[in-house]
Design a protein around this nucleic acid. Structure first.
Lengths: 115, 115
DNA sequence: CAGGCATATACTCATCTGGCTATATATCCA
DNA sequence: TGGATATATAGCCAGATGAGTATATGCCTG
């Protein structure tokens, strides 16, 4: 079983996921919107389904695919410790900008809720 | 140039990144902690460096590698729209759990620790 | 300068993966 | 029922990639 990162490493799969973000779609719709061959779309969808990123329901001859949340949460969890790390840098940058704002003459400060 | 997702798709690279989270390290330290061959570590570090995940400084004959924040932020940004999506589900789950907690027959468990 | 660490690179090999073509399966409709 | 539509799967191939071995490069110390 592959990591969720392996799954989203593929650009076309990420494109499919972005599409499904707005609404569920059939294979043919994805095929046309992304200009991929039908077998290619089906194969990617299989990978995405087996990894839990999508699920499908049957409507006549079509299969409508939609997102599932779990794997995204897993990706996010991996990022958590790193987020602590890079947010320090973001804060430092913000503080720097704020300081520059304040140097000539004081300006309004707005607080960003960060730990 | 590869997507940041491609870079972190590799398990050993993720392991290296996790190591660097606590402190900068030399190639040799990574080699020993992860039990990888030295060329393998160097190669992964090259990929990580070229993708902006790490940078190095020279200390005598060693090179100390440390994290850089930008690519992580990029990964995070990609997740943003999906986060909106899955948090709905998390909310639904939490609400469901809360309801079960309040049910008379249910035992009021609040722990989610691993055994 | 020699010799030794520490790290980078070159090269080879095996594996994996995505795309393509062809075909199978399934459902609808006339 | 048969043909059309929609999707899945199989098989093949080319390119990418990670591991391993061997070697090159760089720096430090005696």
């Amino acid at each position: 079983m592959d990591s969720s990162f392996t799954i989203v490493a593929e650009p076309n799969r990420r494109a499919i996921l972005r599409l499904l973000l707005s609404s569920e779609r059939s294979v043919g719709e994805i095929e046309r919107e992304l200009r991929l061959s039908q077998p290619s779309v089906s194969k990617h969808l299989r990978v995405l389904r087996e990894a839990g990123f999508v699920e499908s329901r049957v409507e006549a001859q079509r299969r409508l695919y939609r997102l599932r949340p779990e794997p995204f949460a897993e990706l996010d969890e991996w990022l958590v410790p790193f987020r602590r790390f890079w947010s320090k840098h973001v804060d430092a940058l913000e503080q720097h900008l704020r300081k520059m704002e304040n140097t000539p003459h004081a300006k309004g400060k707005k607080r960003h809720d960060k730990p």
